[in-house]
Design a binder for these strands. Structure first.
Length: 103
DNA sequence: GCACTGACCGGTC
DNA sequence: AGACCGGCCAGTG
């Protein structure tokens, strides 16, 4: 596991229940604002899937995006109280500030 | 070390 | 508003 992955996963872990964060924001928090893709790669390859709420990570537009796991992110989000409409969430409502959850 | 891939983003058409 | 295109970055063969 590289430093970037660790950081990205660590941040993802801290996303509060019922909230979501964008890949771009996580990338920013990880140290590379443009590395949104890399964040996705890290989450896809990571083995800590069980301890990481990767389903709380959505795209900048609010679209849920893809998911390597079995269940679907959309369903999990709805189960946590995050309204998902047409495969997307209301960022204005559920997006959380990573700056505040990072120490 | 090069080249391809991918859970992406932003700007244009 | 919706679709398209190129460019990001890190990981893997």
């Amino acid at each position: 596991m590289t430093n970037f992955s660790e950081h990205a996963l660590e941040v993802t872990k801290r996303i509060p229940k019922g909230k979501v964060a964008t890949y771009a924001d996580i990338a920013k928090a990880a140290g590379s604002p443009k590395a949104a893709r890399a964040v996705g790669s890290a989450l896809r390859k990571n083995k800590n899937l069980i301890i990481i709420p990767c389903h709380r990570v959505v795209r900048s537009d609010g679209f849920v995006g893809c998911y390597s796991g079995k269940g679907d992110k959309t369903g999990l989000l709805v189960a946590e109280g995050v309204a998902v409409v047409n495969g997307r969430v209301e960022l204005a409502r559920y997006k959380c500030r990573l700056e505040q959850i990072i120490d």
